[in-house]
C-alpha cells in the first residue's frame, strides 16, 4: 500500500481520497457526521423548539439525512416527537414503489413516523397519467410538472402537520450544479433562493427549507450509506433525463477529478456572494406571497403553479 493510500489521521488503510488526503473508515465516519452537525450549528438550521419535517424519498441522501437528523436530536437531547418524514408518491410506475418500500422499512427500523401524500389523491392524477395530457397541450416536461406538485405538496402538508422546518437531502453536488446552471442560463435571481437555509422566517406560509448535507459531496454521502449498511434502491426514475443538469454534473466531476476541491470552491464563492444576491432580490421586486385564489395555498401570482397544472388537466 502506498503512503497516498494511508489515512492522513492514523495511517490505517484509506477508503476515500479527499482534497487533503485519504481517510480510513472510522475517521471518514467521524469527519462526515461532524461536517453535517457543524453545518446544522453554524447556519442555525435547527432550533430546540422546531417541529421538523424531513422530505424523504428513500434515496441515499434522504436516508442519510433522516438518520443523522435523528442522531443530532438524540445528542442534543431534543425529543424525537419533533421529527417526522414526509414522502410524496408522485405515481411513477416501476420507480416510486421500490424507493417507498425501502423508506417505509427504514423509518420503521429507526422509529421515525412517516407520512405519505400522493399526487393521485391531491390532484386526481398520478404523474404518469398527468404528464402525457399536460405535455400534449403545453410541451411541459415531466420534471417541470413533478417539481411544481412536489414543492406544493411538501410545503402544504409540512405546514398542515405543524412543521416549522423542512429538511431536504440536497448535497454539495446538487448545490454546485444548481449554482452553475443558474449562471449558464442567466437565472441568477433563482440563486438567491439557494444556500443552506432558504426562505425567511417572516413568510409564515412557506416553511423554511434547510440542507444539513450542504457540504457533503455525492460520493461521500454514498460512501456513508454503504458503511452504515443502509438499503438504498438505485432504480432510476424513468423520467430522469435532464440533459442540461447531467452535462453540468459530468463537467463538474471532470473538474473535481483533475482539481480536487472544485465543487467546494464553487460553493465557497457562491456563499460569499449569496448575501448580495439576496439583497438584490429583495430590493428589486420583493412582494410577500399572497394566497392562491383557487386553493388558498401561498402563491406569487393570483393562481399558484400547482393549480395552473390542474386547470390545464381540466381543460384538456
Amino acid at each position: 500500500m502506498s503512503n497516498q493510500n494511508s489515512c492522513s489521521k492514523c495511517e490505517k488503510k484509506g477508503i476515500i481520497l479527499l482534497q487533503h488526503g485519504a481517510l480510513c473508515q472510522n475517521h471518514f465516519l467521524s469527519y462526515f457526521e461532524e461536517k453535517v452537525f457543524k453545518t446544522i450549528n453554524k447556519y442555525n438550521l435547527l432550533n430546540r423548539d422546531d417541529k421538523i419535517c424531513i422530505a424523504a424519498s428513500g434515496g441515499k441522501d434522504s436516508l442519510t439525512v433522516l438518520y443523522l437528523t435523528k442522531k443530532y436530536l438524540e445528542e442534543k437531547k431534543i425529543s424525537k416527537e419533533n421529527l417526522f418524514a414526509l414522502v410524496i408518491d408522485e405515481g411513477i410506475n416501476n420507480y416510486r414503489e421500490h424507493t417507498l418500500s425501502d423508506l417505509k422499512e427504514f423509518c420503521n427500523n429507526y422509529d421515525i413516523p412517516l407520512k405519505v401524500v400522493t399526487n393521485k389523491e391531491e390532484f386526481g392524477y398520478t404523474l404518469d397519467e398527468a404528464y402525457p395530457i399536460i405535455n400534449k397541450e403545453t410541451k411541459k416536461k415531466p420534471c417541470n410538472i413533478c417539481g411544481v406538485w412536489r414543492r406544493y405538496l411538501l410545503n402544504k402538508y409540512a405546514r398542515q402537520f405543524g412543521a416549522t422546518k423542512i429538511i431536504t437531502g440536497h448535497n454539495l453536488d446538487d448545490e454546485a450544479q444548481a449554482v452553475l446552471m443558474n449562471i449558464f442560463k442567466a437565472n441568477t435571481k433563482l440563486s438567491a433562493g439557494l444556500g443552506p437555509i432558504s426562505g425567511t422566517k417572516e413568510q409564515d406560509l412557506f416553511v423554511q427549507r434547510v440542507k444539513p448535507l450542504y457540504f457533503c459531496t455525492e460520493k461521500e454521502t454514498r460512501l456513508y450509506t454503504v458503511l452504515k449498511g443502509f438499503k438504498v434502491d438505485f432504480t432510476e426514475c424513468p423520467y430522469a433525463a435532464d440533459g442540461f443538469r447531467a452535462n453540468i454534473r459530468d463537467m463538474l466531476n471532470d473538474f473535481e477529478n483533475k482539481y480536487k476541491g472544485t465543487k467546494q470552491s464553487i460553493i465557497n464563492s457562491f456563499l460569499a456572494m449569496l448575501p448580495l444576491l439576496k439583497e438584490q432580490a429583495r430590493g428589486e421586486s420583493y412582494a410577500p406571497p399572497t394566497r392562491c385564489t383557487i386553493c388558498t395555498e401561498p402563491a406569487n401570482k393570483d393562481v399558484c403553479n400547482a393549480c395552473v397544472l390542474k386547470e390545464e388537466l381540466k381543460n384538456a
Binding site: 500500500m1 497516498q4 493510500n5 477508503i15 476515500i16 481520497l17 485519504a22 460512501l223 454503504v226 458503511l227
Partner: peptide
C-alpha cells in the same frame, strides 16, 4: 466487501 481508494494496488 471493503471500499478501496484509487491508489490501491
Amino acid at each position: 466487501n471493503e471500499v478501496i481508494t484509487e491508489h490501491e494496488i
